[in-house]
Amino acid sequence: MLEVTNLSVSVGRKLILQNLSYIFEQNKTYVLMGPNGSGKSTFAQTIMGHPQYEIDTYSRIFFNKENITSYPVEKRATSGIFLSLQTPLSLGGITVFQLLRVVLKGKKDALSLKREIMKLAKRLNISQEVLNRSLNQGASGGEKKKMEVLQAGILKPKLAIFDEVDTGVDIDALKTISSYLRHFKKNKTIIFITHNSRILDYIQPDKVLILKNGLIIKDGDADLLSFIEKKGFDKL
């Protein structure tokens, strides 16, 4: 589904991911964990094609067998990759409806898009007021993450990466988000990047990956989580 080979990524002169290779299988849910600065967000942003990251010439990213290494950001998105940002930006004067309308121009008429957004917002417990506001402007942590999830829900990607969708979110919001994502992850490849295993009480991952110093140092099943909870990353 998603395959990275010899992925080395640097910002400026600093090497962040080192020769990372991994195959993410279709319709499986992954958890990517690791200490601060291990390269988790860099990995997510590199898959999405953020221009800030420099990729080594040997590195390859394949998505559904297609080499997307040099694809621009929007082409990756239209191929079916979605990234939910760790800190979603606020966009003055743009509502989530306006944003999605531009994305789905010619694919979905405005009225049914509106209906779909309303329905999903209700499910995610997003108020009408927040929905009509400029995206993420003056929004709480929970509201911002819900808006990311809402966009994922409307765009229906094949691969969705959630970068710390559980950070800055209160317990009620976390419950709402995870109960939706439990349903959402069906027939999709999902990568959760997270610092703590709270969200994993709600969502069972197929695989757990540990990233440290830009390398996947360990992968295993959900049992790996309880090991880390007890011993931390240092013991790995």
């Binding site: 999405m48 953020h50 621009p72 950001v73 929007e74 940002l85 930006l89 966009l91 531009v102």
Partner: peptide
């Protein structure tokens, strides 16, 4: 760049 990236990551061209 960040705002552009955000919108582009949703599938919108520059």
């Amino acid at each position: 760049e960040e705002k552009l990236f955000y919108l582009q990551s949703r599938g919108i061209n520059k």
